[in-house]
């Protein structure tokens, strides 16, 4: 079983991100479970969401304490929240930032990858919608979900054709930019 924890701020779409990953892995033929850390939602407040992926139905209902992957949607959270809590040997953290990975202090055994998702989003979508770029990057980085399935999840989730098109483009950009590294 693969366990993913997403850290973001209210309004950044952390819950949508967990849903999209769960959907994409379902379309890949896997079993998945995406859920928010049930808080009181406020714009800007730290938010956590989770995803589990497995080859059989996922019965476990607890939160995720020892994630295999951590997605950090806002770099300021690294200072504000213990984003690396429970990280283990081999955990990979993907941070949305323009800074290089070496600027962040990670616990021993944790690998940090960075992508300037906000900057890319402004170029492609024209708004700081970072979710789908990070999703594409996650697919490129890990291979756990296929980029085609990410596209399918985006198509299912959003109704507006233009939004779907731009977000798929953004996801592909994220996918390719981290794959090349």
């Amino acid at each position: 079983m693969v366990e993913i924890r997403i850290h973001g701020r209210g309004g950044q779409g952390s819950v949508t991100a967990s849903k999209l990953i769960a959907m994409a892995s379902f379309y890949d033929g896997q079993f998945s479970q995406g859920f928010p850390n049930f808080g009181v939602e406020r714009r800007g407040a730290p938010v956590t969401a989770y995803v589990r992926i497995d080859d059989k139905f996922i019965r476990l209902r607890s939160q995720i304490y020892n994630p295999d992957y951590i997605i950090i949607q806002d770099p300021s959270l690294v200072e504000a929240v213990d984003v690396f809590a429970g990280a283990k040997e081999g955990t990979i953290a993907l941070i949305n930032t323009e800074k290089p990975a070496s600027d962040f202090k990670a616990p021993k055994g944790v690998e940090i990858k960075t992508i300037a998702a906000t900057k890319i989003a402004m170029q492609i979508i024209g708004k700081p919608i970072i979710n789908t770029i990070l999703l594409g990057a996650f697919a490129g980085l890990t291979g756990i979900i296929k980029i085609e399935s990410v596209g399918q999840a985006i198509t299912e989730q959003f109704t507006d054709e233009e939004i779907v098109k731009k977000n798929i483009e953004a996801a592909k950009y994220g996918f390719n930019s981290i794959k090349k590294k």
Binding site: A22, G34, P36, F57, R61
Partner: peptide
């Protein structure tokens, strides 16, 4: 059904 744990989980 358990609130949030089931109402808010995305699963097949």
């Amino acid at each position: 059904l358990d609130g949030f744990i089931l109402t808010h989980v995305v699963e097949p």
